[in-house]
Amino acid sequence: MSEQPLIRARGLVKRFGDFTAVDGIDLEVAPGEAFGFLGPNGAGKSSTMRMIGCVSMPTSGELRILGMDPARDGARIRGRLGVCPQLDNLDPDLSVRENLTTYARYFGMSRARARARAEELLDFVQLRDRAASRVEPLSGGMKRRLTIARAMVNDPDLVLLDEPTTGLDPQARHLLWERLFRLRQRGTTLVLTTHYMDEAEQLCDRLVVMDGGRIVAEGSPRSLIGTYCTPEVVELRFPDGVDPAGGLEGIGRVDPLPDRVLLYTGDGDAAVAEVHRRGLVPSSVLVRRSSLEDVFLKLTGRTLVD
C-alpha cells in the first residue's frame, strides 16, 4: 500500500484548443504526503488539479489516481476525493448545513450519517452559529470555509485544495492550517495550490513550482531554498537616482527589483559590511533568511501577484 503512489502522472498534457495549459508534467504523490503547487497566474496549477480531481480529462499522458484510471473509474476515484475548487460553487439558496448534507448525499452517505458529519464539520470550520442561515449573504471567507468543510464530508483519502485560503482573514487562515495539519496527522494526503509562500512552507512536505505549464523545480521547501538560493538575503533600498547595480558586483548574486535590490549571499552581515566598505549608502538595509519567495522569484522571474 505505502509503496503505491496515490497520484502518478507521466507526461501529462492538457490542451484547450491549440493552447497548451499543462505541458507534459511528471508527478508522484505518496500516501500521507502534503504536496503543493506553486506558480504564477496561468501556470496551469488549476488545470492540473482538475485532472487529478477527475473532472477534466488529460489530452495525453498517463494518469493514475489511487491506483485507478480516471477515464474508467472516475466515479469511484471521486468518491474517495475531497475537492475544494478555486471558485466556490456552493448552493446560495440553501443553508450552510443543507449545503453539507446535500453534498454528503452525493457520496451515497445515509441521511443520518450525512447529518452527523455536517455537525462535525460545522465545528471543524467554526460555522456553527451560521448553520441555519442561507449561504448567499455569507462573507467570502465564510463561504470559503464552508467549501473546505464540504470537501471533507466524505472522509476523503486525498484532499485537493485549490487556493484554499485565498480571501481568508489571518485568524481563519491559521485555523485552517491547524485543521489541515490535524488531517495530515491522521494520514490524509493533501494536495494544494497556493500563492502564499508561508502557507507552502507551513503545510507542504514537498512542492513543485510550475511555470508555463511545466514543472520548473521540485523538492521540499528547505531543499528548494538550498538549491536555488543562498542561506541569506540582503534587501537594500537606495535613495532615488542612485543606481548601485555596478557597485555591488562580486558581493553575491544581485537581483535588481523596481523598488529594491536583493543580494543573495551566504553571510548577510559580511555582505552589508562589504557594501559600506565600497562607499555605497543604502537608505535601508534588511538582512533575512531566504524564503520560498526568493526561490519563486528566481525561478519564474516575476513577483507572485502580478
Partner: peptide, 14 residues
C-alpha cells in the same frame, strides 16, 4: 451562476 452541476461533477454523481 450557481455551478451546482460542477459541484456534483466533483463527486461520484455522474
Amino acid at each position: 451562476w450557481v455551478r451546482g452541476f460542477h459541484a456534483m461533477r466533483a463527486t461520484p454523481v455522474g
